[in-house]
């Protein structure tokens, strides 16, 4: 049996269905960035060693660099582009901006989504719970502290809406 050049994949990303023809060996990271133009999802190693490529699948933090699109048909995929709704930023995005939790901004999409997964299940997490939840995303700029504070600030505000 030969390796097909492309296969049909239906992905639900940020609430929208997309019908794609992609090589079956492309990871979700590559499909999002290269076939769907969603470059908000970054990459730092492509080996699952930094989680910079983090997205949410059915609300849980996934590594897009290790995820196979064919297995994700029918699942809800959320990228940073889908965090804002109706033209309004997510409270986490606002808090990250307000507190300077994004320095270079490269790990930021993954940090935001991972934090969102936490707040969606634990709206008022302790500092320890935040540290545990974010322990899989590496950041080289901030020393993490402003990120923790931004998650706490967002949690302290009303209107965290799950999407």
């Amino acid at each position: 049996m030969s390796i097909p050049e492309r296969v049909a994949v239906r992905l639900r990303v940020n609430g929208e269905e997309a019908a794609l023809m992609v090589p079956p060996y492309k990871t979700l990271l590559e499909v999002l960035r290269e076939d769907m133009g969603l470059t908000g999802t970054k990459h730092g190693c492509e080996l699952g060693e930094c989680s910079t490529c983090g997205v949410l699948v059915d609300g849980k933090p996934y590594l897009s660099c290790l995820s196979m699109p064919l297995d994700l048909e029918g699942r809800e995929i959320l990228t940073v582009e889908g965090m804002s709704a109706d033209g309004r930023s997510h409270p986490l995005q606002i808090a990250f901006a307000e507190l300077g939790a994004a320095q270079c901004g490269y790990c930021t999409p993954a940090m935001l989504l991972t934090a969102k997964a936490l707040l969606d299940t634990d709206p008022h997490p302790s500092r320890d719970a935040i540290m545990e939840a974010l322990a899989g995303v590496l950041c080289r700029c901030t020393g993490y502290l402003k990120i923790f504070e931004a998650v706490e600030l967002a949690a302290s505000r009303d209107g965290i809406t799950a999407r």
Partner: peptide, 25 residues
């Protein structure tokens, strides 16, 4: 970017089918 090698991706619906696929590939 590091990429996977070109490969086929099969999705069996049962354990028996999975074993069969492995045996025949």
């Amino acid at each position: 970017m590091l990429r996977l090698p070109r490969l086929r991706y099969l999705r069996p619906r049962s354990v028996a089918e999975a074993s069969e696929m492995a045996a025949s590939n």
